[in-house]
Design a binder for these strands. Structure first.
Lengths: 211, 211
DNA sequence: AAGCATTCGTAACGGCGTTGTAATATGATG
DNA sequence: CATCATATTACAACGCCGTTACGAATGCTT
């Protein structure tokens, strides 16, 4: 009927692998479809038949990055000390992000910045999966009496995720205060949060009147 | 000596104002030097004689964004309740960031992503100034006995900054967990942190053996 | 008035993502 | 086996982009 396909799954994987190598190593700005096609010794058409466009390729890279990150966190097996698990998850979270800054960037940078054409009605973000293990640990911690059971476990986990993501992002964006041991601060901040969520914490009162 | 200059300070301000309008409104990806020059009815040469290149223009926009953000935080006058000041700073921080997402993005997104040519040996980041008021409030809080004096005030402030920046960034990047009141979580996380730093918090022990 | 140093606008360069199109390679058909 | 039909690919062109080379415009000096 027609010529045999060379734009097949194998080529898709080769393109994806090569693109991941450059993006995870040098960032999305260093990725060019023409260069990528040349590297894999095919034409730019391949990218369009296999990924739609550059946004589609980046979306696949995003999914790959999410897979890797989630897998790394899933390697932290739950223990009988859930509060400790939360801290350990945070430390590994930071360690992996710092070790793979561009992988972390494609997961958490504003995607409208990376690729303006990408609409907001895209498939839901998978980076949020990196926060599921935290929720599980907090939930187990509540059952073990290590966290207040009056607070939504997702709220507790989100506060930890926010702190982790924030301190990691500040370092990665070059905004860490000079002369400060951010790693220590990171661990202590997590410790304060985990300890603070032991007792029930209602909504803080008296700060409604913001000037 | 030569023809009179039209690439003067006035034109510089007009370019800067116009560029700020588009970038703060639609992001750096929406900024084109050619379009910008056309809008201000000059040539692209003007940008190069006044800002060097696009990175220089973005650098000036960065400084402008930092100025605006710092000014907004400086409007929070210290009270005799420094711990409350910390919370208030955090709330205004979030409010302003959410209201001006692209302004916040140019301040805190990885600048090597925004403009690859920009070397890392550029002028030091000014976004860190947004964290100075926090340090001051914490320092006053320590003198008032609201925070442990055994911890570096910069460490306490950084933990708060990290939490604020992290939760704000998660929302701006579209990674907020669905069905969760992130604003409440934000306020409660800050409350837990501020309360947690009351007592001296040493380095958390026993988590060194990360699997 | 002529010369000249300086400044600016235009056009060109290389590269990008994307798309239209023509060549190609195959299975089906006679 | 030769031809056709068609799915599939490679290539070139389009319209952008940031950047730069260069000639034109300008006003002071002689």
């Amino acid at each position: 009927m027609a010529r045999l396909k060379t734009h097949d799954e194998a080529l898709r994987l080769r393109l994806l692998h090569r693109a991941a190598a450059t993006v995870f190593d040098r960032g999305t700005a260093a990725l060019s479809l023409r260069q990528l096609a040349a590297d894999v010794k095919t034409s730019t058409t391949a990218v369009y038949s296999l990924f739609g466009n550059k946004a589609g390729l980046l979306r696949s890279l995003y999914e790959e990055a999410a897979r890797l990150f989630v897998a790394r966190l899933a390697a932290i097996r739950p223990t009988d000390d859930p509060a400790g698990d939360v801290i350990r998850l945070g430390l590994v979270y930071r360690e992996y992000a710092i070790a793979n800054p561009h992988l972390y960037a494609i997961l958490f940078s504003d995607r409208s910045v990376q690729c303006p054409s990408e609409s907001e009605s895209e498939r839901p973000p998978e980076a949020i999966e990196t926060y599921r293990p935290l929720v599980d640990a907090v939930r187990r911690g509540q059952q073990a009496g290590q966290f207040s059971s009056e607070s939504d476990p997702e709220v507790i986990a989100l506060s930890v995720w926010g702190t982790a993501h924030g301190l990691v992002s500040l370092v990665l964006s070059g905004n860490e205060p000079p002369g400060l041991a951010v790693a220590d601060c990171y661990e202590r901040a997590l410790g304060v949060l985990v300890a603070g969520w032991r007792e029930s914490k209602g909504k803080v009162q008296g700060f409604a009147d913001v000037p």
